[in-house]
């Protein structure tokens, strides 16, 4: 079971270890359950050692659901290895990607009045 925490109005799903054919169904389940609660979502990949196409597919499905629900969504802590898998399918140009949870949560100066 992947841990989920609430932080700054976001649900943060911490994926860990190998997210492969065996584990991606669980990752998908946790991601979709969070979105059913109608909260914006961050997926923390910083503790992921390997993510395969089934894991990436779970992220794609989660992102599409969040877009349908108009909920904010982002990936954080994406390793270079995971990034190369995203790049291969050009998904690095699709997902909102942030260096860390803190970077995503920090106030956007452009929103200041």
């Amino acid at each position: 079971m992947y841990p989920v925490e609430e932080n700054g109005g976001y649900s943060v799903v911490h994926l860990t270890g190998e997210v492969d054919l065996n584990c991606s169904p669980e990752a998908r389940k946790v991601i979709l359950e969070c979105l059913r609660r109608n909260t914006p979502l961050l997926i923390d990949l910083s503790a992921v050692t390997h993510i395969d196409s089934s894991g990436i597919a779970s992220l794609v499905e989660g992102y599409q659901v969040s877009r349908t629900l108009k909920l904010d969504f982002g990936l954080v802590g994406v390793s270079e290895r995971a990034m190369s898998v995203l790049r291969l399918a050009r998904l690095d140009q699709v997902f909102p990607i942030f260096a860390s949870i803190e970077e995503r949560l920090k106030p956007d100066p452009s929103q200041d009045v």
Partner: peptide, 19 residues
């Protein structure tokens, strides 16, 4: 070879077709 959800399988296939 797998028992993945149909959505997951379709996204995986379409990703590889993108590649």
């Amino acid at each position: 070879h797998t028992v993945l959800d149909d959505n997951t399988m379709r996204i995986m296939a379409r990703m590889k077709l993108e590649v």
